[in-house]
Structures are given as C-alpha cells and as structure tokens.
Design a protein around this nucleic acid. Structure first.
Lengths: 113, 113
DNA sequence: CAAGCTACTAAGCAATGCAAAGTAGTCAGG
DNA sequence: CCTGACTACTTTGCATTGCTTAGTAGCTTG
C-alpha cells in the first residue's frame, strides 16, 4: 500500500492545521495526526515538515522543558502560516471535488459554498 | 500556486477513472480532466502517466488512425486496472476524510457508507 | 550504570508531476 | 509546393516531498 503519494502536500497542510489549533510539539502532533486517521506517520516524516514550515515562516518555535524527557520545541502558527493554510484549504477542496467527480461520479451533495 | 504536490497519486487515479468509462486517448483525457476542474494538465504531465499505467498493465493500448491528425493511441482499462482503481478509491476516501477532519473541522456529514 | 521512554536530527532514496523541447501527421492559404 | 496551425505523442531532466534508517540526547527507574 503506497499512500505516500496521496499524502504529498496534504500532510503539510494537516500539520499546519493542527498547530493552528494551539501551540504544540512534534510528538503530540504525530498522535493527533494518528487520531485523525493517518497511519504510520513517523518522526522521520514529521520533523522535516516542521523544519520546512519553520524555515518558510509558517510557524515559529519556542523551546521549553518537558516534565518527562528532553527539551521540547513548541510550535505556533504565524500570520503567514494562517494565510497559507486557508489558501491550501481552498485549493485542496477544489482538487478533491474534481477528483471525486471523476472517481465516484457526479455527486452534487457537496455544494455547501 | 503549487498544486503539483496535492495532485500526486490522485491524478493517476483520475486518469484511470476516465479510461474506465470507455476507451479513449490522450488528448481527450486531458480535456476530460479539465472539464472535471483540473487546470493546466499538460501533455508532459499526462503521457508519462499513461506510459506508466500501460507498463504496469493497468491499461492496454490500441493504435488507430485519427480523422484529423496523426495516429491515436486508444487506451482501455484492464481487470488489474479496475482492481487498482477501486483500491485507490478506498484509500483516497480514507485519506481525504482524515485530512478534512483536520482542515475543516469535524463534520460527520460525510458518513454515506 | 544499563534499559527504556521521550524528543528531536540528519542523510539518502523513490515516486511523481511538470516544464521544455522535439517528432510527425493532416489540412488550409498563399 | 511551402508554410503555419492544429492534433497527437515522446523524451529528458528537474523539484518537491514523504519515507526509511540511524543517530543523539535528556530523563527516570531498577
């Protein structure tokens, strides 16, 4: 099962979405992604995403001690990140609509716009 | 706007879906994709997809003269392609559900299964 | 001090969409 | 006949991004 390709781009958006709901850190993001239904999102997958988002000023970082374990890096979303997120939401919606039209047939149930 | 990443994997599935509705050829597939809402699907994007699907025995090919222009390659889906398509549909649905949960919030409107 | 958990880092790979350029057939206009 | 426009497919090479694997390091417990 190769879901890797289907995740491209969306994963980054989902990470951004999780962070937009409140300051959080890597390990917790992974468990939220899995709670939402994503499987096998490893650390080697997530952390590069965080690094990239940080580098692109979509999120910002703050170090803080953890009650158990090494220092955590807490991330929060920036204004720029929120823009990017809402932009991505729109594009994702458009693409999934087109795809669903072709994949599942022409359902117009989704015209909630 | 970089929709390229969001298309990964789905595009291939959509092409397969188009072909599954009846024998067709490259140029026409492009216009069907655009009719469904995909923008700027160029030839350099589509034809490699067709080549790959053919190589993996998802589709089969037949050459036939065109009333206007060079020879066309008409593709039709194989049993194996249909399997792959229905598998992809299921995986795509699962992923988009998870993504939508995170991106747009927890709508349960989509429990039509 | 070793084991095991938490937490982040880093190197390298593979898949796929895309841009750009090319080949070729048909047909209309001059 | 030649040129340009349109149809139709091919090829090369690149960038992005998720994934695998391995590694570093702090903390707690026995």
């Amino acid at each position: 099962m190769d879901n890797a390709q289907l995740l491209k781009g969306v994963l980054e958006g989902c990470v951004l979405a999780v962070i937009s709901e409140g300051e959080t850190y890597g390990y917790q993001i992974i468990s939220e992604l899995e709670a939402a239904g994503f499987e096998d999102i490893g650390e080697g997958t997530l952390y590069p995403v965080l690094t990239r988002l940080d580098k692109n000023k979509m999120i910002q970082c703050r170090r803080a001690k953890s009650p158990l374990g090494p220092v955590r890096k807490y991330y929060s979303i920036t204004p720029r990140g929120e823009e990017a997120l809402s932009d991505l939401k729109a594009r994702y919606k458009k693409i999934t609509r087109s795809a669903e039209k072709l994949l599942y047939g022409e359902f117009d149930d989704k015209t909630e716009e």
